[in-house]
Simulated assay, not measured.
Amino acid sequence: MFGAPKTTDLTPSQVKAALDAQEILLIDVREPAEFAEERIPGAQNVPLSTFDPAALPDAGGKTIVLQCAGGKRSAMAVGKCQEANQVIQTHLAGGLMAWKAAGLPTVTGRS
C-alpha cells in the first residue's frame, strides 16, 4: 500500500532462533505497564509513546527487531524509524500474541 512503511515480518520461531543465536536486539514498543506484566525474555522496553529512533539502545552489530502485542505498534515504530532515516524495518509479525500462540516462553511480573 502506498505510504505504508516497508516492514520485514519475522515469525515467532525466527525471532526465537535469532535471540538464541544472539543475532538480534528485540525492542518491545508496548507501554511499561504492559512490558512489566508479560514480555519475551531478552526484550528491552522502548515505549511507542516516547519512541525516538535516535535514542534506541546500541545493538552492538545485531539486527534490531521491533515487537508489540499484535504487530500494529511495532509496524508504526518501523514507520517512525523510516521517517528518521534509520534502517530498522524488521518486526515480529503478530507480536506477543503470536509468540504465545507458538508456545514460546514469556516472563511475567517484574522478575
Score class of each variant (00 low, 15 high):
Gly94Phe: 09
Ile27Gly: 00
Gly95Ile: 11
Glu34Thr: 13
Val29Tyr: 05
Met97Lys: 15
Ile40Lys: 00
Lys62Gln: 09
Gln22Glu: 15
Glu83Trp: 01
Lys62Asp: 03
Ser111Thr: 12
Ser74Lys: 09
Ala98Met: 06
Ala77Asn: 12
Leu19Tyr: 00
Thr7Leu: 08
Gly94Leu: 12
Asp52Glu: 14
Gln67Arg: 01
Ser49Ile: 07
Lys6Thr: 14
Ala69Cys: 00
Gly60Trp: 00
Gly109Asn: 06
Glu31Asn: 07
Ala69Pro: 00
Leu26Ser: 08
Arg39Ser: 11
Ala21Leu: 02
Leu48Cys: 11
Arg30Pro: 02
Leu56Asn: 00
Gln89His: 12
Thr8Tyr: 03
Glu23Lys: 15
Ala69Leu: 07
Ala77Ser: 08
Pro105Val: 00
Ala98Ser: 09
Pro41Arg: 13
Ala102Val: 03
Leu66Val: 09
Arg110Asn: 14
Gln86Arg: 15
Leu66Asn: 06
Ala59Leu: 05
Lys100His: 02
Phe2Gln: 14
Leu104Tyr: 05
Val78Asn: 06
Gly79Phe: 04
Pro32Thr: 13
Thr90His: 12
Val29Ile: 03
Met97Gln: 14
Val78Asp: 04
Ala102Ile: 04
Pro53Lys: 10
Asp9Phe: 06
Lys100Asn: 01
Thr8Ser: 08
Trp99Ala: 01
Ala21Asn: 07
Leu104Phe: 05
Asn45Gly: 07
Gln14Lys: 10
Leu19His: 02
Leu104Gln: 08
Ser74Leu: 03
Val65Thr: 07
Leu26Cys: 07
Leu56Glu: 03
Ile64Thr: 12
Lys72Ser: 13
Pro32Ala: 13
Gly60Ser: 01
Glu23Ala: 15
Gln82Glu: 13
Arg73His: 03
Glu38His: 08
Pro41Glu: 15
Ile64Pro: 02
Lys16Leu: 01
Ala93Ile: 09
Met97Ile: 14
Pro12Lys: 02
Met76Leu: 12
Phe51Ala: 08
Gln14Ala: 09
Ala59Phe: 02
Ala77Met: 11
Gly79Lys: 12
Ala93Cys: 15
Ser111Tyr: 07
Leu56His: 06
Ala75Gln: 10
Phe35Trp: 15
Ala102Arg: 04
Asp20Phe: 00
Gly61Ile: 03
Lys62Met: 05
Gln14Pro: 01
Gly103Asn: 05
Glu37His: 14
Ile40Asn: 02
Pro47Arg: 13
Phe51Glu: 08
Pro105Thr: 04
Glu37Met: 13
Leu92Cys: 08
Met97Tyr: 12
Asp9Trp: 03
Arg39Ile: 06
Gly109Val: 11
Trp99Cys: 00
Gly3Arg: 14
Ala98Gln: 06
Asp58Trp: 04
Phe2His: 14
Ile24Tyr: 09
Cys68Met: 06
Glu34Ala: 15
Glu83His: 09
Glu34Pro: 05
Ile88Arg: 10
Gly103Ala: 00
Val46Ala: 10
Ala4Pro: 06
Cys68Glu: 06
Gln89Val: 06
Ala98Glu: 02
Ala59Cys: 03
Gln44Ala: 11
Pro5Val: 10
Ile40Pro: 01
Ala4His: 14
Val107Leu: 10
Ala36Met: 15
Gln67Glu: 12
Ile88Glu: 10
Met76Gln: 12
Thr108Trp: 01
Ser49His: 07
Thr11Ile: 04
Ala98Ile: 07
Asp58Arg: 03
Glu31Thr: 08
Lys6Tyr: 05
Leu10Gly: 07
Asp28Ala: 04
Val107Ser: 05
Gln86Met: 11
Thr106His: 02
Ser13Ile: 09
Gly60Pro: 03
Leu19Glu: 04
Gln82Arg: 09
